[in-house]
Design a protein around this nucleic acid. Sequence first.
DNA 1: CGATGTGAAGCAGTTCACAGCG
DNA 2: CGCTGTGAACTGCTTCACATCG
Lengths: 257, 257
Amino acid sequence: MSSSAGSPDSGGIPDIAGNGNGSGQPGTAANGRPLPEATIARLPVYLRALYSLSERGVSTVASDELSAAAGVNSAKLRKDLSHLGSYGIRGVGYDVDYLVYQVSRALGLTQRWPVVIVGGGNLGRALANYGGFVNRGFKIAAILDSDRGLIGRRIGDVAVRHVSDLEDVVAMNKVVIGVIAVPAPAAQGVCDRLVAAGVTSILNFAPLVLKVPDGVDVRKVDLSIELQILAFHARRRSAVRVERVPEDEQVPEEESV
Amino acid sequence: MSSSAGSPDSGGIPDIAGNGNGSGQPGTAANGRPLPEATIARLPVYLRALYSLSERGVSTVASDELSAAAGVNSAKLRKDLSHLGSYGIRGVGYDVDYLVYQVSRALGLTQRWPVVIVGGGNLGRALANYGGFVNRGFKIAAILDSDRGLIGRRIGDVAVRHVSDLEDVVAMNKVVIGVIAVPAPAAQGVCDRLVAAGVTSILNFAPLVLKVPDGVDVRKVDLSIELQILAFHARRRSAVRVERVPEDEQVPEEESV
DNA sequence: CGATGTGAAGCAGTTCACAGCG
DNA sequence: CGCTGTGAACTGCTTCACATCG
């Protein structure tokens, strides 16, 4: 593990709270134990719903409404939030803005993390333009590509730089989060360089399993896997329908593998 | 639920097997119970690893190697595969090509599912060009966009059509899977139209929670949520490092309750 | 012998249902 | 009174460890 990774510039929002998890280790629940992984994965969804409420001027929200907006049931929401501390008001609900702050803090988004995106193709561009939400908590330190024809082209408000600048960009901006949006054959090489440069968190869009040393956190987003999971359920659904409805709607439009 | 959805064209690969799950309901394990959701989510990963082995001419693989390639432990792999049937050879391993077939069949990928992509922006284009793997099991029925400037433009080997063709495309191609790659404000509207047209499986890339009727399956891929989860772990890691820096060997000591 | 397939144990996450509090 | 916060029950997934069999 390299030495260059540090904390990004602090947002400097002070801790207002009294009742909750004000001073513990980051990443731990109010009771001192680590936050459940499943809870962590849902906090961003709650946060988005809360921002949306806040923008509409809603100042207070009950667990029923918030959970509906987030697509989960209310018991789960309450338990998730209770891991952060006791931030609700019984008989009333949650203060929207205060909860935004607490959830942001729990996720570590009171800082803005510099992120480097490797790959300036369609996917890299889509990410860079994702705007709005990505920009809450993140800033794009650079978009890198190996295609010299892309260099200098602006995407969002960042210009594409050559991938040879990778190590410089990471060091100069103290980047700890890297996004890999290159074709599969190039991905492991990019990953190795990111890790060597000090990046310890990687979001991988290339369709392969990256090998990384211990202490490096990889998450993958795989477009085709999601489709395949959908296909599985779709087939089950249609099989059930065919089973039940003896209706000859089968149209074999040939196409072999 | 609408009436137009049907099974896609059948691939027509016959069932070779003897020992396993040859004739049961699709989507059920060898024991007749449904496949665990967690298993379904990993099968595509195994499948990719298997394709890779097959292309390299490997004919047999043991659970250790395959599980390593897929990034899981071997017990999990074996249990997952055992849900499909008993397709391994004790003392030897698994026949790669045969397992490719069995996993494909379990996922419903011996058919090629027509998919409609709504949104011809960077994300839609990235999806359409994802190539290779998406094309195993899927074909793009159409890419739709509301921007008339994009109409006719070819992405991969499909031309962009206007979103007003949505209902026609779904009906003509018996599309059951739709991908939403439009900006958030347009997403719910697109979703409603897809559902009304008969689509029952939706892959949503827009950063909001879609409302759909029962019987419609939505999966979401959220670029910013993944980043936020990474940020959480990154912060915990950096906090721990700062905390512990005066490092000596950790003396095993009592953990307080 | 060596790797699969699988009961059994262990763990994590979800849901229930209600006590507790504003 | 109404909604939060939470023990307790439950469900599902993972891991272990070994009997089984080619």
